[in-house]
Design a protein around this nucleic acid. Structure first.
Lengths: 109, 109
DNA sequence: TCCATAGTTCGAATACCATCGAACAAAGAT
DNA sequence: ATCTTTGTTCGATGGTATTCGAACTATGGA
């Protein structure tokens, strides 16, 4: 449990980032983190088992999207906005913009 | 072989698009189509077997990224730029921009 | 008509991914 | 010390992707 591996920006790849965001659960996690500065895993859990959520967070961390730090027993997650912006300028904003737009236009799905 | 199924813009999903572009082969195909108006499957084949390339094109078509039409015995592909821009404004440009940027900054990979 | 070209479809093998329960680890509270 | 909370790791399962060869289709040319 000790330390997470957070890749350095020069290890980011576009493919890995796009793959990480191609899953609805992870996209929704990132959407949430896009709107609040940080959140624990539990807040983003929905009704899924913890092991599933933990898996998705690992994928997001490995892609460089999310940074996790320890505070007591909870793990606090936030987007790596600056690193992402430096490596992929405008990309996160474009993806989230598209996500919000579709959410508005297709409420039921 | 008759007709392809090209989804209509209101069937596009962000997840499917991101997934389609999370594969290096498909990302490179789209990069190529981003720089030329259109190309046949053969031009984008590399040294892969035809059935593999055909599979990747199907994924790209299903995601709404690529449109294929018949001309004689060849199938000509192009990006669905306008449809994509309407559904996901700025997204394709941001992704391709990131792709070109990394290509410049990391020539060997 | 027969052959070559361009690409699709099928089937099988392999590999990968998501999901879940169960066991585990670390920190805080009692 | 023990118990609770939070989340990770492990192992198994089921589903889905990728890859390839082989058979097929449609068109154009000799």
């Amino acid at each position: 449990m000790r330390h997470y591996s957070h890749p350095s920006p020069d290890e980011f790849t576009l493919e890995r980032l796009l793959y990480a965001l191609s899953d609805p659960v992870r996209l929704e996690i990132v959407r949430h983190l896009y709107e609040v500065p940080e959140a624990t895993c539990g807040e983003l859990q929905g009704d899924r088992p913890k092991s599933s959520v933990s898996h998705h967070f690992r994928v997001l961390r490995d892609a460089g999207l999310v940074c996790t730090r320890y505070v007591g027993t909870t793990h606090i997650n936030s987007l790596r906005r600056e690193d992402l912006e430096r490596v992929f300028p405008g990309l996160l904003e474009a993806i989230m913009g598209a996500y919000f737009k579709l959410k508005r236009e297709r409420p039921q799905s």
